[in-house]
Design a protein around this nucleic acid. Structure first.
Lengths: 222, 222, 222, 222
DNA sequence: AATGAATGAGGATTCATTCAT
DNA sequence: AATGAATGAATCCTCATTCAT
């Protein structure tokens, strides 16, 4: 039972002979490759040998920079949460009309999964092991508060303007929006089998996108 | 990195010396234990040794009845889909008013995850490996059509009666409902860390349940 | 590293439902299949499961009739030696002119390997394990004396008639004749690779046959 | 059914604690031990665990240096063919009179099997599996051409000088010479049982040797 | 900083054989 | 006579990690 092998990494492959004692580069290359490996194969399925091979570094370097497979995996999780948060940060929702801001957030969330399911895969792995590793992070928690605060602001503004119904909780809404986007992608392979359809086709995806935006706005409007 | 071990299986433990040559029983016991193992540890993380120990059978029997770890895992997937489908079947939504029927379906979906996250865990594993194994099943696909047909019937009835807005697609709605319930549970561990809250507490869960039912009905009403 | 699988046995396949409690038939079928299995895969490579499957009998029957894998293997060896001896017996060399008799024996030996390499394969296996099993037979030894006696008679007659040179030992000659035929077939696969030729082609075989007969007669003539 | 165990390897035993990180040495030791194991037990009968134990290396090293049991076995085959070829090379037959050269080649072939039956045993195994592994070698084929060319030269010279009869084919003669020596050793255990004699006794062996040389020369002389 | 060699504890799977009917 | 269930000891191979340089 072997996963489809990830292709050799072009970005990583390049500076083979040139590079010598490039601390930051080596570390970054390990992290990049490890992110893909853990996302594609899960924690147990990812092999340190493969990561070393694909990163074109000596296996010993993994331990030099990250101490253990688990620590490397945690570094991957933290990096990926960082990226997600800073992408949200760049959204700049405050300047939009409340309903437009929500629509944009839904689209942003949905599209982020269209581009890349790395985050979803890592979270699947981490939840299967009950967040055992993520719990050990001292950087990750409260990382998501800004987006909840932003949504809270939008809701309040919308209620004030009469465009959004009162009584909505920002955290619940965030979970709902994320979930309604997330599930389609997190389960896209089994859904494709069960419904005997290829859910990855662009038109299926854009149909889904339209439904999600419409549905969320419906549920939120005054 | 070892998962918290599943507790020894009481059901399985009982008839140690009494049982002899109980074909159906042995098979069933393997399947039960394997379901929990694969759900708790994923495909790679589950160990045939552990399954054999916990099922209190000789390891060789796994191969006698299921040929390989992968086939055993597929049998688990099929069994679990079967159960899900027959639970849906018992719902008997047709007799209710359209909006009530939808509410009941949402509650049923949500509650099924409250009781048992086995299905969620297995799907997480299976999606991480791109449904590689599920694809090989010749029993699973189209298994879910009945529920889509049922929802379609509800939507049509609701539109006729003027209680449900027109233009909704049954499959999209099913994905939305399932997703809005599913994500909360599939990601409950990482969410708990990120938001520094215990999302498993009963009052958090029932708050979430109320929100979901309310939100779906809002999105559906005429 | 899996051997080319032997095809399902038509002879054995037939009387599936008809046969019931056919002691001699069951035993014979096991022996037939086992002969092929041991010849094709060696002692270690032959699997009792496969033998049972191909003989279409319950695995337990092997133990019923033959006690163990090793005993079954010994029965195969004995049967195969029996057949070889009785084929030699039918040769009836005494009535021919000494040189013709030798020529005929060479051809017979050579042709017996063309038809069937079962014997060669079994002997290869048995010699690799230093005749450990054959030693345990109380039927096999001295089985080959008749042919040596026959050759001895031929040599003496030929010397008397002046057609065969004196000083030849019957046993040495038997080994030489057998060896000169045997080696070509026992090593036909590696020879084919080493010399990059297909030694199994009919014309290659008949060229070899002519050489062998010619060479032996040359070595023997007065 | 366990083969007589090979005695612990003195050569390998020595530098237990001293040796550290000796790449070439480790590889060579594995290859040596594996050669004996495969020769004594065949491919299926040889156990990687035993090889590791006897080579006094960690089992993992076998896979480090040779990737798999089959690759290790192929390396053994190639090494053994290499040795055979270079021994032939050292023979330097060209300087001798044609008949003496052939006599010497026969004696050399015979004696090589007296010293060591490793090669015979490995070929027995490999032929039983139809040269499946040897076929995969890209180094082995055409390895034996030099000796055929040498014999061809001898035959031509002998014919020219009138000491060797015309019409002999070098390849056929090589097969005949090899076979006439080989069979006695490849089947020495079963022959000993069948003829109830110990064919390994020195005087039996030298009697055989004299016969073979005499017989080949007879078959070749003008 | 970087490397290749080395390790020990598993991991899935196979196998000849025996048990209970 | 015949069967399917059950067993325990191997067997090849893998993996995260450490050693020596």
């Amino acid at each position: 039972m072997r996963e489809d092998d990830v292709k050799p990494d072009e970005a990583a492959a390049a500076p083979r002979l040139v590079r010598k004692r490039d601390s930051a580069g080596t570390r970054a290359r390990i992290l990049n490759v490890a992110t893909r490996e853990f996302a594609n194969k899960g924690f147990e399925g990812a092999k340190t040998d493969d990561i070393a091979d694909r990163a074109r570094i000596n296996k010993r370097m993994i331990y030099h920079y990250f101490s253990s497979k688990e620590q490397l995996y945690l570094a991957v999780l933290e990096a990926v949460y960082d990226q997600a948060r800073s992408a949200e940060h760049r959204l700049d929702l405050e300047r939009l009309e409340p309903l437009d801001a929500l629509a944009r957030f839904v689209e942003f969330t949905f599209d982020s999964f269209v581009r890349d399911r790395t985050f979803i895969n890592l979270l699947a792995t981490e939840n299967r092991q009950r967040a055992k590793v993520l719990k050990k992070s001292d950087r990750v928690n409260t990382m998501n508060s800004p987006i909840i605060a932003a949504i809270d602001g939008i809701l309040k503004a919308g209620v004030d303007k009469g465009t959004i119904r009162p009584g909505l909780d920002a955290l619940q809404l965030w979970i709902t929006i994320t979930g309604v986007c997330y599930f389609f992608f997190s389960n896209i392979y089994t859904l494709s089998v069960i419904f005997d359809t290829d859910f990855e086709k662009p038109d299926v995806i854009s149909e889904r996108r339209a439904h999600v935006v419409d549905f969320v706005l419906r549920g939120v409007k005054a």
